[in-house]
């Protein structure tokens, strides 16, 4: 639901798979979000620091810098600490999930188990 007031919420999608990235981007734009994309952890981190989006959708298995490291850096840096992070991964292990929460993730979703609308729902609730 696009917000008429003030500025639009900005979402950063960090995802190495082009097809998925495109789906998320297209879907979130339909809801009126300002969407930025990054193809790997390094790119994602630099955009996140520079642009300070409201929320980051973060893949874990990525080239260069892994999603978990990006999360760790974002959550331990004062300027980016407040950015909400949703981990969106193909990894299903419970240990990964636990680690993600320990590092300060706001939510954790497994790609293959989550419908697109569920993901959008999570994003919306976190950005309220």
């Amino acid at each position: 639901m696009p917000k008429a007031s003030s500025k639009r919420k900005r979402i950063l999608i960090v995802e190495d798979d082009v097809a998925l990235r495109n789906v998320y981007e297209m879907r979130l734009k339909l809801d009126g979000y300002d969407v930025i994309v990054a193809g790997d952890g390094e790119e994602g981190l630099s955009i996140a620091v520079k642009e300070k989006p409201d929320l980051v959708m973060l893949d874990l298995m990525m080239p260069k810098i892994s999603g978990m490291d990006v999360l760790d850096i974002l959550k331990s840096t004062p300027e980016t600490k407040k950015i909400s992070v949703i981990i969106l991964t193909a990894l299903t292990q419970e240990s990964v999930k636990t680690k993600g929460f320990v590092f300060g993730a706001d939510d954790f979703m497994v790609k293959s188990e989550s419908k697109l609308e569920e993901i959008v729902g999570k994003v919306k609730s976190l950005l309220k």
């Binding site: 798979d17 097809a19 998925l20 495109n22 789906v23 998320y24 297209m26 879907r27 193909a90 790609k111 293959s112 419908k115 697109l116």
Partner: peptide
């Protein structure tokens, strides 16, 4: 395989 299917599903 799952990734393109997920994308397809999303669209």
């Amino acid at each position: 395989i799952r990734t393109p299917i997920a994308a397809l599903e999303g669209y």
